[in-house]
Amino acid sequence: MNRLILIVILVLLVGFPAAALFLLYNLPFDNRDPAPVQPIAFQHTVHAGKMQLPCTFCHRYVERARQAGIPSLSLCMSCHRSIATEREEIKKLTSFFEAGQPVYWSRVHQLPDFIYFSHKRHIKGGVLCATCHGEVAQMEVVHQVRSLEMGWCLACHRDRGAPTDCTTCHK
């Protein structure tokens, strides 16, 4: 009985500070869905995996602009006018295109508003897409694999000798 109480007290004494430290270490939390549902179940496994299209085939601004860019529907349709037109998801795509409506894709990777991030700079600096996005070609549903937290970015910046001045990223 006494021993039990002792153990409980010990566990509390060690556990509580540990939990508090863990909490503090990670504050503030990111509670977004790491793998949100998309309006069209686009298959990176097919396009980037099986067919081995390069990332830049669709995300064509990645080397030229801050944003990588989402492919325009006309680009999708340039193939899907004839390919796999009978599939349910492609029909969705076609209906979007014909209605002249853009697709509102759910963002998987989202940096906060106060962060300046340039895809161009990272690509030109020799960072691979997979470094931050993971092996998208093998993901049935694209999900976030990196924390994209400050400490994570910083570790890489320090390793590569990239600038660590606050204004590099904080805007």
């Binding site: 977004r32 601004y61 030229r64 602009a65 801050r66 944003q67 860019g69 989402i70 492919p71 325009s72 529907l73 006309s74 680009l75 295109f97 002249g100 409506q101 853009p102 697709v103 509102y104 894709w105 759910s106 963002r107 989202q110």
Partner: peptide, 26 residues
């Protein structure tokens, strides 16, 4: 992409047709 409406914060909006040459998103 990234127009001012609420849902764009968590959404990426596709072009229907690609923009003119020289116009880069962002």
């Amino acid at each position: 992409p990234g127009c001012g409406d609420d849902r764009s914060a968590s959404k990426l909006v596709s072009y229907l047709v690609p923009p003119d040459e020289g116009v880069l998103p962002g």
